[in-house]
């Protein structure tokens, strides 16, 4: 009985950990930008979506190119995927930096509400541009399905078989986060970042090039969002212009949950949200297996898998607004 229950739960938990890792990579971008600029970068989720689209288009463009160069169809595809990954990383970072320069930098001394509105405007622009370019259709992701070798291979853990990317994601996430934490704690630019997030004006007086620090923050955030997007969309079949909005919002909730401004907090929050959400998706199934729900009764928990994140947000904001690892911030009169 317990063994059966465990084997019912396991796939949900595993995919939860994987989704959590992807949310974590997006959440870091939110939490770092918020830590420094006190801005919810609403466009971050859309940057994530654009990274997915870049992958789609660059792969479509590059595969025939490599085939013309004399490679066989299979190897041309692999080479084009690998070079597309590089293109995705570079272009996404450029996009992130451009948005910061064009839409946020001119408003540096404006009220915070204006910057937030600008972020919403950028998100609106990116989504509309994506609808125009894709024609509003879902674009199949090249790396998903059987086409992507190795990453999409099925492997078996216990009695469940899952894609390899599900196992790779959390490992890769944790490696990247450790590297990031080391960067923040040990390097000079990391020290500058910490200083700017503590006090914007004083750090400028101390000779820190604040604009450079902000650019680096956006660089890191967009880079991690691109990595997250590669992993996320490998699990899903296609990219649509709005497919960045929900993961973006959830990652933001994860950042708030962990204590906004704190990188480890965002990661922990993201894993918790990812796991809870996926368990909720399978809760009807799990409870039926456990014998709580009888005679085919279902509650329809899956409808609430998105809403759950926001319920969690409202609860955490009311109980502990600073999140799990956030610093306490008092308002001075």
């Amino acid at each position: 009985m317990i063994g059966k229950l465990f084997s019912t739960c396991l796939p949900y938990i595993l995919s939860g950990i994987s989704v959590g890792g992807q949310y974590a990579l997006i959440a870091i971008g939110y939490t770092m930008v918020y830590g420094i600029l006190r801005l919810i970068n609403f466009a971050h989720g859309d940057i994530f979506m654009v990274a997915g689209l870049i992958m789609v288009y660059s792969n479509v463009a590059l595969t025939p190119l490599f085939m013309n160069m004399g490679l066989s169809a299979g190897s041309a595809f692999i080479v084009s995927i690998i070079s597309s990954v590089v293109i995705v990383l570079v272009l996404t970072v450029i996009l992130g930096l451009t948005i910061e320069k064009a839409a946020y930098r001119p408003l540096r001394n404006a009220p915070r509400m204006s910057v937030m509105i600008s972020a919403i405007g950028v998100s609106y622009l990116i989504q509309n541009a994506a609808i125009y370019i894709t024609g509003g259709l879902a674009k199949p992701y090249p790396a998903s399905g059987a086409a992507m070798p190795w990453l999409s291979d099925q492997i078996t853990i216990g009695s469940t078989s899952i894609k390899r990317v599900t196992v790779i994601t959390p490992i890769l996430t944790i490696l990247l986060v450790v590297a990031l934490v080391l960067l923040i704690k040990k390097t000079k630019i990391g020290m500058a970042m910490r200083a700017v997030s503590k006090d914007f004006r004083t750090s400028r007086l101390m000779g820190i090039e604040v604009n450079n620090v902000i650019s680096v923050t956006f660089f890191i955030g967009s880079f991690l969002a691109a990595v997250g997007s590669l992993l996320y969309f490998t699990n899903y079949a296609s990219v649509t212009p709005t497919s960045g909005a929900m993961p973006g919002l959830k990652a933001f909730v994860a950042a708030v949950f962990g204590g906004i401004g704190s990188v480890p907090g965002a990661v922990v929050g993201a894993f918790i949200i990812g796991i809870c959400e996926n368990i909720l998706k399978g809760l009807d199934n799990i409870l039926s297996t456990a014998g709580v729900f009888k005679d085919g009764f279902t509650f329809g928990f899956a409808t609430f898998s998105d809403a759950f994140t926001f319920i969690l947000l409202i609860v955490i904001l009311c109980v502990k607004p600073t999140g799990l690892f956030g610093e306490k911030n008092t308002d001075k009169v």
Binding site: R112, F310, L317
Partner: peptide, 28 residues
């Protein structure tokens, strides 16, 4: 609960509330 929150937190909490409402109305 929500009105005690400051600016951006209020924004995101109300946004979340709208999503919750939408989910509830689609619940079979």
């Amino acid at each position: 609960p929500v009105l005690k929150l400051k600016r951006d937190y209020l924004a995101i909490a109300t946004l979340g509330f709208a999503e919750i409402i939408r989910a509830i109305f689609q619940w079979d």
